[in-house]
Design a protein around this nucleic acid. Structure first.
Lengths: 109, 109
DNA sequence: TTGAAATTTCAATAACTCTTGAATTATCGT
DNA sequence: ACGATAATTCAAGAGTTATTGAAATTTCAA
């Protein structure tokens, strides 16, 4: 992971709809949710949901599988962790303040 | 911190030059670096460096102070930690895989 | 106060991102 | 095969982001 890669991944996270997609899929767990369910959960039209799902999947944050007529998406926790780990340990050299924010349960601001 | 806020902050991180700026400033520590030094460090023209510094400072990732003719920038570790903490604990509900990536020293992919 | 240095701001342009709605592809049940 | 369902892809348009080089601003030193 270098700056170019990380920048692309951060771009995939730089949209409220996409963050809501991730949140919905985190709650859903490993079974994931269909594109239609995700669209409904984040209040996006089918094509808009598809656009954001494609962005997240291209970045590797989501896996995709077919289940009958539905395409089911799930979060890849390792991919998100990989990006955050790059930020914490590589970009920020493991600075204790930043590690503490990721470890402790509270996020004040 | 909500999805809108977090998305804006992630946007500020979604550029290789800006990630290199952060890296340079992390290495520099609390004393920071002048805009000119940062531009040289990331190989950007003055106006280009200024543009990226403004983006990072607007997001709250950098503080700025004047020292003689130079404007000196430094990283705000709490702001970066705040965003990562939101991602880990709020958006991803403190999923153990993600916490582990932020805690352990290794970031493989 | 004149001139140089450090930075930012501005204007123009090119490239990218997002949204919408229509068209297309894939799958299933009968 | 047919019709319905689920989702993606496409095309057009609006808005945003990044780059460049020139002009303006701020500060300092003589």
């Amino acid at each position: 992971m270098n700056e170019e890669d990380a920048a692309k991944l951060f771009h995939a996270l730089s949209n409220p709809d996409r963050l809501r997609v991730i949140r919905a899929l985190v709650v859903a767990g490993p079974e994931g949710l269909s594109a239609g369910e995700i669209g409904a959960a984040v209040n996006a039209s089918p094509s808009r949901a598809s656009f954001h799902l494609a962005t997240l999947a291209d970045a590797g944050f989501l896996t995709r599988r077919r289940n009958a007529r539905s395409l089911v998406y799930a979060v890849d926790f390792n991919r998100i962790g990989g990006l955050l780990g790059f930020m914490v340990h590589d970009c920020c050299k493991g600075h204790p303040t930043i590690e503490a924010c990721c470890t402790g349960a509270a996020s004040s601001d």
